[in-house]
Simulated assay, not measured.
Amino acid sequence: MNGDKVVVSILAGTGVWVKLGLISTRLLVGALVAMGMNIKDPQVHAMARELAARRGTTVTDAVRRALAAELERSPEPSALKLQDAKLQQLLDLLGRFSNLRWPDQRTSKELQDALYAR
């Protein structure tokens, strides 16, 4: 996690604490969970402060809006898989079409060669 640490505060509810590597969290059912992030990269902090200043808002709001915009631009993994599958189908069809022969049994290349032969 590149030294990043996630701090979880429990506002209400009960649950089970879970620790994954450097992360400990309490899994809750039906409870409101407030989370804080401790980003240890000075460049990220500077960028967040600059974005907040440009927008005249808080750092939290600037980060929230930037993340929301990026999530909206980024397709879901299932959409990418579907896009890859459609591309593969298209490439398969193009491969099949390139091997088809015309009614006189010549290939497209043979026809082009005959067309432009001198």
Rank of each mutant, 00 (worst) to 15 (best):
G15Y: 01
R49G: 07
N2L: 09
L82D: 15
Q89S: 13
L87M: 09
L51E: 12
A12R: 11
G21K: 03
Q43E: 13
Q88Y: 09
L80E: 11
P77K: 06
K109N: 05
E76L: 12
P42V: 02
H45A: 10
I39N: 05
R118E: 10
T14I: 09
M35P: 03
R64M: 07
L90T: 14
P42C: 01
V8S: 03
A31N: 06
L28V: 15
R118T: 12
R55L: 10
P77S: 09
S74H: 04
D41I: 01
I39D: 02
A12W: 04
V16G: 00
A66H: 07
A34L: 08
N38T: 02
M37H: 09
E50L: 06
V59Y: 04
E70Y: 02
G3S: 11
Q43G: 05
E110K: 05
L91E: 12
A69L: 06
V63C: 03
T25E: 04
R106Y: 03
L115T: 15
L80S: 13
A34H: 08
N38H: 14
I23D: 09
V8I: 11
D84I: 07
K40G: 11
A66T: 11
A53I: 00
L27C: 01
I23C: 06
A66M: 12
M37R: 14
G21V: 00
R96F: 13
P77R: 08
A53D: 08
M37L: 15
Y116H: 03
D84V: 09
S24K: 13
S98T: 07
T58E: 07
G30Y: 02
I39G: 01
D104F: 05
R106D: 07
W102Q: 15
N38Y: 14
K5C: 03
A34G: 09
V8Y: 06
A31D: 06
A114G: 08
L22G: 15
V29T: 13
A114H: 06
G3Y: 07
V6A: 03
A66E: 14
R49Q: 14
R101Y: 01
L20G: 03
K40Q: 14
G13M: 03
S9H: 08
V16P: 00
I10P: 00
A53Q: 12
P75A: 10
E70A: 13
R96Y: 10
G15K: 02
M1K: 01
V18Q: 11
D104C: 05
R101T: 11
A31V: 01
A69R: 04
T14V: 11
M47Y: 05
W102C: 15
A79V: 10
N2C: 00
S78M: 05
Y116W: 04
T14D: 15
V6G: 00
I39W: 01
S74G: 00
A46F: 02
A62P: 05
V29Q: 14
W17S: 11
A114Y: 08
